[in-house]
Design a protein around this nucleic acid. Structure first.
Length: 850
RNA sequence: GCCGAAGUGGCGGAACGGCAUACGCGGCGGUCUCAAACACCGCUCCACGCAAGUGGUUGAGGGUUCGAAUCCCUCCUUCGGCACCA
């Protein structure tokens, strides 16, 4: 037994804390991961991971996002690619201001401290980021180009100014959605009731690209993301139709209400109209005796959230305004209502209500006792049958009824004919509408990119001249414990001279939405220090679009849609030639706190990676995050199980560095399995190694990191079984060990580098980094088997397994199955009705009656 | 409410039209040790059975198929997004 003790002490214990910092320093020294963007000798691979927000809630979630991405970068490098994996910080935003208001400090200080800590943590991962290309969006060298691009978009007619409502607190100014609390909608800071206030704000014309954004040609994105974006854009074909109002004693002028409808075929069924509470004609048309009630209703509606207003669950509310309109097809007078289920921002902010054929209109009509008139009928349905629900179905065999000259036409045909007839008098036109709205980029906040505009009494809206960019944020800010924008109180910032006339003028104090920063940062990564333009055209021609983008699914629509818009807009002002920003996209899941909630300091459920790294090492943490589950799933954090991954790395350490050692706990240790020759064992080892290589390669490519780790565990378990036997140290053994290390290298870069170096030293070879090795080739012949097992089912139930030659024909497999004793017993003399040999001989199913 | 996704052992999960529960955690038993820790070996979905085995099982219910965790329909639950969190 002294032998086992000896063998166990032959190699020192795996100690990540000794290994990891040393290799990180060595890689940095060798500049192993600095990407030469001008190097064209290798194919390029731009791997982008969503840059983090330096929230101060530094948590394991950041590692969860970055670790597999780094493994992928290393995997691609081993395939001969020139990989660019940049990193930066999304440094503007609300949390920095909140921290500043609370602490009295400066958002800049808070942000930079967080960034410094995150840099350290990200470095401790051993990730191969190109730190020399780092971008920090709160730096004037970055946000200057937000301003520059904004001015170019303004020149190109892609930016405009318009009044729109914000959630407003009398004490704390504009509030973000998360700052409005409770069903009563109160300010989170002072508890005051939140109201709507209309402000002049800047918009970007995303809708100009609505049609192009619907096409995902040439990019390989997950289907659910494309569906969500398509639904967000929400293209609807229909018509705009004009309804004239009926003059009244208090309003004799005829007003025209233009509605948008996707169902012009149902025009004869319109029995009332609805205006959005924000519609300008509400005020004009409301009868004096209805005024009080309407005003109250409008004020209430404006306080509701859109989600609430659009809920089909909620009881419909509304108020008649005491005016009628005329249906242009039949001259019928119909009452006009104001109701919050109609939104000002969609279509024309007014609808014709057809209760018979629209669910919400039906509910409203029921609520208010309004007539329901069927105008579309499926075969077998009477024109005036009582309706218990709106009839929405759209099929080819339904016909118009109660529609005058259009009776008998199909819905499509009738719709076209009705629009055509009205169009002759200029009363209708075919129209496509989108749910997508233009992008409101104005924020009434300090910590963002100042919008480079000056307002002059004489010259109006004046862009800041390009040579005066950047418009810098003043360094001294005074929050005085309040939530509103301190720029409004900063005289030095506010008061400027008009660039056109030289008279005193006022500077815009709104800053830009932080989604502006994140809409083009990957272009800036290529040339972060370029000072004569936002992007380096030569580099973008080579490096963009991004080959692979990884990041959270919570960005499925907004960030990814804004980025697509921005790319197209930059293309159209001649800066780049890309049509799309990201060729391939992968959305990983989110790590939640142990309580199943999103990690945040305020919830106290933040998991810091540092402790785990200290205890187990970065390689174990990296591997554990990959092993936890499918990357696109995420889930609540639990460190239980990390010990298993740590054990696995210890086993790799032992099996590679001490192949001839034996295990005291295993009576069979050091012996080949019963009945197996050394040649059999060597072949089995080789087969296992190459089978694993084939599967692991596919798993890396498909982002299936959890099964990738599982398969490497299996291989190491197989090797462990042969540890200390006569085949340990053979050619096949050494090859398997080599493959194991190469496959593990992208995921666990430190331990593999250490073992690689020790092996080189032991063999007297000169050291080269494992991370400069090429990815190995699968030898299919090593995996080939001579016999295999085929499961046999009877009526879909597994009854036996038979062993057949690997190249057995279907007939031979059938015969073998029927000859099996268990199968014969199960069949009990019954004659098979059918025998299915499935999947090219993978499985047999015998179907019998009774 | 609307759009998207997911529900599988005690737990994380594997299989994604063909052997359900790979791999790991936890648990149980063992080897080593004076002992503990570490390490190692074995067992571990549920029910009945001494066993061989038999039956059941992928959120619930229905359907398609020789065959369904996987495809379709209805429902339930959870997560992401819903335009000022990023």
């Amino acid at each position: 037994m002294t032998e086992t003790t000896e063998s166990r002490s032959r190699v020192e214990r795996y100690d990540p804390s000794a290994i990891e910092p040393r290799w990180q320093a060595r890689w940095a020294e060798l500049r192993l991961y600095e990407t030469d963007l001008r190097d064209t000798s290798k194919p390029k691979y731009y791997l982008l991971t969503m840059y983090p927000y330096p929230s101060g809630d530094l948590h394991i979630g950041h590692w969860y996002i970055k670790t597999p991405t780094d493994a992928l970068a290393r995997f691609r490098r081993m395939h001969g690619y020139n990989v660019f994996l940049p990193i930066g910080f999304d440094a503007f935003g609300l949390p920095a201001e909140n921290a500043a208001i609370k602490s009295g400090g400066h958002p800049f200080t808070w942000t930079m401290q967080n960034i410094e800590n995150m840099r350290r943590q990200l470095r401790s991962m051993g990730a191969t980021f190109s730190w020399d290309h780092e971008v920090v969006t709160a730096d004037p060298s970055y946000y200057k180009w937000n301003q520059w691009l904004f001015l170019r978009f303004l020149e190109a007619g892609l930016a405009y100014r318009q009044k729109s409502p914000v959630d407003w607190c009398p004490n704390d100014g504009t509030l973000a959605r998360e700052q409005v609390e409770g069903p009563e909608r109160r300010c989170w800071r002072c508890g005051e009731l939140v109201e709507k206030r209309d402000l002049d704000q800047w918009y970007l014309k995303t809708t100009a690209y609505a049609e192009e954004l619907l096409s995902f040609e040439g990019i390989d994105w997950p289907e659910p993301i494309k569906v969500q974006q398509t639904n967000w854009i929400g293209r609807s074909e229909g018509a705009e139709i004009d309804f004239d109002t009926v003059p009244t004693p208090y309003h004799e002028a005829t007003e025209t209400i233009r509605v948008f409808t996707t169902r012009p075929d149902t025009l004869f069924g319109a029995t009332f109209m609805v205006l959005a509470p924000e519609h300008p004609l509400v005020d004009v048309l409301t009868a004096p005796d209805r005024r009080a009630e309407v005003d109250v209703y409008v004020a209430q509606a404006r306080r509701r959230t859109e989600i609430d207003r659009l809920s089909t669950d909620r009881e419909k509310t509304g108020v008649a305004i005491g005016a009628d309109a005329v249906n242009p097809v039949n001259g019928e007078r119909i009452p006009i209502f104001v109701a919050d289920y109609v939104l000002a921002g969609y279509g024309t902010g007014a609808i014709m209500a057809v209760p018979a054929h629209d669910e919400r209109d039906f509910a409203f009509a029921r609520q208010f006792g309004l007539p329901v008139r069927r105008v579309v009928a499926a075969p077998g349905t009477g024109a005036d049958d009582e309706m218990s629900d709106a009839y929405i179905a759209h099929s080819a065999d339904e016909r118009l009824v109660n529609s005058g000259p259009f009776d008998g036409m199909s819905a499509d045909e009738g719709g076209r004919a009705i629009v055509e007839m009205l169009a002759k008098n200029g009363k209708a036109e075919a129209k496509v509408t989108y749910r997508l709205r233009d992008w409101l980029i104005s924020r009434q906040r300090y910590w963002g990119t100042p919008i480079p505009i000056i307002y002059c009494e004489r010259d109006g809206i004046v862009p800041v001249p390009y040579e005066d960019l950047p418009v810098r944020l003043p360094e001294n800010v005074d929050y005085r414990g309040r939530g509103d924008n301190p720029l409004n109180k900063d005289a030095a910032f506010l008061n400027v001279t008009c660039p056109v006339c030289g008279e005193p003028a006022r500077r815009e104090t709104d800053t830009m939405d932080t989604f502006v920063d994140s809409s083009w940062y990957w272009y800036r990564y290529l040339s972060p220090d370029k000072d004569d333009g936002p992007v380096d055209r030569d580099l973008t021609e080579v490096w963009t679009p991004v080959d692979q983008y990884t990041g959270g699914a919570e960005h499925a629509v907004m960030h990814l849609l804004y980025s697509r818009f921005w790319t197209k807009a930059m293309r159209d002002i001649g800066l780049i030639s890309d049509d799309e920003p990201f060729k391939r996209l992968f959305n990983q899941g989110q790590i939640l706190g142990a309580d199943g909630e999103r990690m945040s300091k305020s919830r106290g459920n933040v998991e810091d990676p540092d402790d785990l790294v200290t205890k187990y090492g970065a390689d174990t943490v990296r591997l554990f995050l990959m092993f936890m589950g499918p990357w696109d799933q995420g889930g609540p954090w639990s460190p239980s199980g990390i010990g298993g991954v740590y054990r696995f790395l210890n086993r790799v350490w032992t099996v590679t560095l001490d192949p001839n050692g034996r295990e005291p706990g295993d009576p069979e240790s050091g012996k080949l399995p019963v009945g197996e020759s050394a040649a059999d064992a060597a072949a089995a080892i080789r087969a296992a190694a190459h089978r694993t290589l084939r599967d692991v390669t596919e798993d890396y490519e498909g982002f299936r990191f959890n099964t990738m780790v599982a398969k490497l565990m299996e291989l190491s378990n197989t090797l462990y079984r042969y540890r200390g036997t006569e085949v340990a140290g053979d050619t096949e053994w050494d090859e398997a060990i080599r493959l194991l290390l190469l496959m593990l290298a992208p995921a666990a870069p430190h331990i593999t580098e250490e073992i690689w170096a020790r092996q080189a030293e032991a063999a007297g070879r000169e050291w080269t980094s494992i991370h400069t090795e090429s990815w190995p080739e699968v030898d299919e012949s090593a995996i080939k088997v001579s016999v295999r097992e085929v499961p046999v089912q009877v009526n879909g139930k597994l009854r036996a397994r038979i062993v057949v030659a690997a190249d057995a024909t279907e007939e031979q497999i059938k015969a073998g199955a029927l000859a099996d004793a268990k199968i014969m017993a199960t069949l009990a003399g019954r004659t098979p009705e059918r025998i299915v040999v499935a999947g090219g001989g993978k499985l047999v199913n015998i179907v019998v009656r009774g």
